[in-house]
């Protein structure tokens, strides 16, 4: 599937999740290779979809790479707590839940009639995303450098339908 086709359903899915639960509107800024500072300062997670009673063949995974500052701010808003008091475990929990919800939202936009189930998100080694192309979003307040994407989605799902 082309990056443009992925962006067509990923952008509204991620915007919907962020606006509904995190009360901010991310700006889609295209796809980019995830290397350097973007990857090094991030907390990556992946969601592994699995198939049940589906009307199409679906396989692969969705990965979320989120900047630590954004994860800290989101966790801080949710708890609520001072950003300095947010632990790595709480940031992990925030990204884990975001990954779960983003996966559901993206699949629903991509294949609204499919019946699917998916697994519980798990943390991964950042190096596993090195050089992969991700759909990047600028989130207000999500990075010290406002021009740096603070959220990237690697969509590696395929359907035979």
């Amino acid at each position: 599937m082309s990056g443009e086709r992925q962006a067509a359903f990923l952008e509204p899915a991620i915007v919907q999740v962020m606006e509904t639960m995190y009360f901010c509107t991310p700006l889609y800024c295209g796809s980019a290779s995830l290397t350097g500072a973007l990857l090094g300062a991030s907390l990556p997670f992946r969601e592994l979809p699995s198939l049940v009673e589906t009307n199409s063949e679906l396989s692969g995974e969705l990965r979320v790479v989120m900047n630590e500052e954004l994860a800290r701010r989101m966790a801080s808003d949710f708890l609520p707590a001072d950003p300095e008091d947010v632990t790595h475990e709480q940031m992990d929990g925030t990204i884990r839940e975001f990954t779960n919800i983003a996966c559901g939202a993206a699949l629903a936009k991509w294949m609204p009639k499919a019946e699917f189930q998916f697994g519980i998100p798990r943390k991964m080694d950042p190096e596993q995303n090195n050089g992969l192309s991700g759909h990047c979003f600028l989130v207000p307040g999500g990075f010290a450098d406002e021009a740096m994407p603070s959220l990237s989605i690697i969509f590696a799902l395929e359907s035979d339908a």
């Binding site: 009673e53 996966c103 559901g104 939202a105 629903a108 609204p112 019946e115 998916f118």
Partner: peptide, 9 residues
């Protein structure tokens, strides 16, 4: 509540 948007589920 669920992130799974499936009519069957």
């Amino acid at each position: 509540m669920s992130a799974v948007r499936s009519q069957g589920i």
